[in-house]
Amino acid sequence: SPNSSVTEIEHLTQNVLKSYRETCQLRLEDLQLLRLETFSWEEVRSYQKKSMEEMWERCACRITEAIQYVVEFAKRMGGFMELCQNDQIVLLKAGAMEVVLVRMCRAFNSENRTVFFEGKYAGPELFKSLGCNELINSIFDFAHSLCSLHFSENEIALFTALVLINSSRPWLQEKDKVERLQNNLELAFKHMLRKTHRESILAKLPPKGKLRSLCYQHMEKLRSFRQMYPIIVHAVFPPLYKELFS
């Protein structure tokens, strides 16, 4: 880029990797050690017997926890806090859940199609009482396809920074500033892939529309749930979750 020096890009890379390491919620080593800990049949049954309201509230809480780490990742990332507050909010509102979905591939075991949830690995059937089988299966399929890329931690760091810093999000006030940061992050990502001979993954990254569609489906499901249980959502769902998704 004519405007960014190699040192600037290198500095940005190091900053994103550090921000990611500090905010990744669960260490990859721990997630991998726990891979054999799957829920027993009885435990799965007890999750399936929970009411729809209780299961929704649990999942809303787990998503909110994951999102708090993404907010912290954004705050520590070079350039993000220099954007105007409107744009910080626009980017987080549109991108936080997308980042959570990408981060999920670290907590996913492709071999038996399970994901780390509340202390053990769970298959899609555990989430039956949510009443969103199709969405759950789409999310599992997405995690499975991301796993096939065998992302390194550094690749996830830079890729999720790019999911967040997206200058095509509607309602940005300083689009140019976001675009410049996005361009630098793209350079940083490509430079790292070149150094590690991993440029081939560029063609296999999920299309932006895929993440957008999963997030849209999640919001649609929340809308239906809210129509059935408005008081539950109002009284017990985490305020941050409501702010982001309804």
Partner: peptide, 14 residues
């Protein structure tokens, strides 16, 4: 409108 996000963004690194 985005009270919680504002608050999270205004707090220093937590």
């Amino acid at each position: 409108k985005h009270r919680i996000l504002h608050k999270l963004l205004q707090n220093g690194n937590s």
